[in-house]
Design a protein around this nucleic acid. Sequence first.
DNA 1: GAAAAATATATTGTTGACAATATTATCGGC
DNA 2: GCCGATAATATTGTCAACAATATATTTTTC
Lengths: 232, 232
Amino acid sequence: MNSRNVTNLRDVKSSSKLAVSDTDRLVDELRRRIVNNQMPPGSRIRESELAEEFSVSRSRVRDAFGILEERGLIERIPNKGAVVMRLEADSFLELFDVREVLEGLMVRLATQNTEPEYWDDLIELFGNDLEKAVAENDFNAYMSAIAEFRQSCINAAGSGTLRGLLDDIYDRVLSMTRRLMLVPGRASEGFRQHQEILQAMRSGDAELAEDLKRKNIRSARQWFLKYNDFLL
Amino acid sequence: MNSRNVTNLRDVKSSSKLAVSDTDRLVDELRRRIVNNQMPPGSRIRESELAEEFSVSRSRVRDAFGILEERGLIERIPNKGAVVMRLEADSFLELFDVREVLEGLMVRLATQNTEPEYWDDLIELFGNDLEKAVAENDFNAYMSAIAEFRQSCINAAGSGTLRGLLDDIYDRVLSMTRRLMLVPGRASEGFRQHQEILQAMRSGDAELAEDLKRKNIRSARQWFLKYNDFLL
DNA sequence: GAAAAATATATTGTTGACAATATTATCGGC
DNA sequence: GCCGATAATATTGTCAACAATATATTTTTC
């Protein structure tokens, strides 16, 4: 967190244009590459390479590495260098556990803090068109819809603390989320679950929404467990 | 999270003796000073001062600042320096919200992963002696008991991811926890709640334990709300 | 020819010097 | 005496050279 309060780096950057340092840019770009699997887990990253590519001094790269390390995206081994963190099955299960409670909290707060109409746009987004797209395996459309849902919820929840925690976790599970979507049946189930959650939110039932969101993550966890041989 | 997997810095350091860098030591000491209010919120911290005091180069201090910043303990303002983060009432309420779900998860997992006997020591610790101590306002005894409870739960839960999140939050709320203890009635209520939670854990009822822990945090939140004029 | 030792190379870790910026002190005008 | 401009100081930000460490290569020895 930089010129920031309790919320984390990205928020402030997106809300206040100025003061994006070299380090911040580096962090952002490396984060992008990691979550897009352009730098797959286990990849070695050399400081000097990046310094040259981005035309910055090695110190900046070093600072960026420090932040990425603290976020759990890379691992630094003294005198050996940095490698993209490799997540094991255990870690994913742990992440599912914390996601269950945190995303549950997210939708509860979001529901409590908004008028029912706030959700109409999302309900429309999760309508027949998207259902068809999901049925036809258009995962990009589904992914961006999920992302929008997530973003709207975080904004509505209005907790910088929660946003910070969720953002950190999100980076670590994104690639897995995408792979999980490929498992036959998972996407359409997830779609339906999101519809149900949105209905609960629209009707203002925060407790129900929380419960449904938790069930949603728990079911994703089940699919992961069942297919983790293929997913990891 | 450093030469470390998903867990965070402190864990690894405490489990593997070697490789405690200057930076790590600095982070630890500064963290201690901040949570003990030796450096109260709003305090300005100068890099060169610390560099001299610890006989390290300013770069190390800088690295440490980066980590503390990412953890939300200090705020860095470009070209102006670092100040200890000042938490507002809103932030505390946000922290209570996330604590509620995360500590709930903590006791649920802890209960699931242990044999009933695991909790006997803690149950004894939270016995008549401690009750008397609390009644006589011996807050140090109570604080360390709470800390032990917490640590046992985290260990039993066995999730590095969760531990990392809780540790981060802990640092930010410790000073508030201590102040809240001074409010007449809060300490003894908290004590009783912990006894109940321990009973639930001892009997293996994970769901109940989670529910009780959540109620525990929620009641702390209520007290905070009621007395925040005095607490902040 | 294989294993061990010694050398060479590459990469990370650390530092102190310098540049950029903000804060404080000084001075002159009214 | 007070306000604004300007200089002096202090503090953070950046960098490039050097040291320490690990890895790869070559040489030596049996």
